[in-house]
Amino acid sequence: MELVKPDHLQELITSFANKDVYIHLETTNGSYAAHFNESVFNAGAFIRNIVIKFELGKVAGDSPHRIGLKLPSGWIYAQGITHYKLDEHGRLLMAGLDAEGKLAVALEISETPFTY
């Protein structure tokens, strides 16, 4: 993955519009967050291999970027995206990595299912 180039990422996102695509969306502050600091409220969410079709996808804001996908009757968004890659399987992988290189958020779009 490399640092987001917004124009390029915008092109890639648009290439998945109006198709059935598989989504991976994840936010996390780590399973140990509240162990190391008991005042941390540990929250996160995860979906994987959910099929959606979006009509409009946008990259917004300066880095870290926000990515929003408008669905016929709903929304998906991810905040804090810093890195991206179109991998060798044609999957668009986006992630938000903190200063230490720890993943805080991930949004991935693919025309084929992700592994389990």
Partner: peptide, 18 residues
């Protein structure tokens, strides 16, 4: 699979980490 440490610059991504 859900390990958070991908490095900065990253040495892996969500799909290659496993």
């Amino acid at each position: 699979e859900m390990g958070r440490n991908l490095g900065n610059p990253p040495f892996a991504n969500r799909e290659t980490l496993p």
